[in-house]
Computed example of a mutant assay.
Amino acid sequence: MKRLKDMLERSAFGVCSYLGEKMGISSARVRLYFIYISFVTLGSPVLLYLFTAFWLNLRTYIRKKNSWLWE
């Protein structure tokens, strides 16, 4: 079960984990709030989630490229 959870977290871009670490709360709680807010607002937080996932991937790519440049 833990392996499945880890796989899903990696494939879901790690946005909830990142936000949970930054706010100091568990990622499970962030996911739960995200689900609740999505139901109330009819899915509009999905756009915010996708934007954040794009931003995190871009940031990771830039960091990898910069570390390779300085080595």
Rank of each mutant, 00 (worst) to 15 (best):
S67C: 04
G14N: 02
R59L: 07
D6V: 05
F13L: 11
L32E: 11
I25D: 07
R31W: 07
Y61F: 15
Y33C: 05
N57M: 12
K5G: 05
F39M: 14
L42K: 13
L4D: 11
R63W: 07
I35Y: 03
A53F: 00
M1G: 14
N57H: 13
Y61M: 12
L56N: 05
G14M: 02
G14K: 05
T41Q: 07
F54L: 11
Y18Q: 04
L47E: 12
Y36H: 08
V30S: 02
L69N: 13
S44C: 14
L48I: 06
G24I: 02
T60V: 06
F51D: 06
W55T: 14
F13Q: 01
V40K: 12
D6I: 09
T60I: 03
I25M: 13
F13M: 08
F13I: 04
F13W: 07
S38N: 10
L19T: 01
R10I: 01
G24Q: 03
K22Q: 08
S38R: 04
S67I: 13
L32S: 13
K65G: 07
M1S: 09
A28L: 06
R31N: 15
S17N: 09
I62N: 04
K64G: 02
Y61V: 08
K65N: 13
S17M: 02
M23S: 09
L42Q: 06
Y36E: 09
L69C: 08
K22A: 03
V15H: 01
R63M: 09
I62Q: 13
G43D: 12
E71C: 12
K65F: 09
K22S: 02
L50P: 14
K65I: 06
G20Q: 00
M23H: 12
T52F: 02
K2V: 10
N66T: 10
G24F: 10
R63V: 01
P45F: 03
G20D: 00
L4G: 01
N66S: 05
V46D: 06
R59G: 05
E21C: 11
G14P: 00
R59K: 15
Y18N: 09
G43A: 06
W70G: 03
S17D: 03
Y36C: 14
S11Y: 09
E9V: 10
G20M: 00
S27L: 11
S38H: 05
K22W: 00
W70P: 04
W70A: 10
C16G: 02
K65T: 15
G24M: 04
S27C: 09
R3V: 14
A28W: 04
L50V: 03
W55Y: 15
K65S: 11
L56V: 06
F54I: 14
G20P: 00
A28M: 10
F39R: 07
K2M: 09
D6F: 06
W68K: 15
I62S: 12
R3Q: 12
L50S: 08
G20Y: 00
L58R: 11
L69M: 15
T41S: 14
L32M: 06
S44T: 15
S38F: 08
A28F: 05
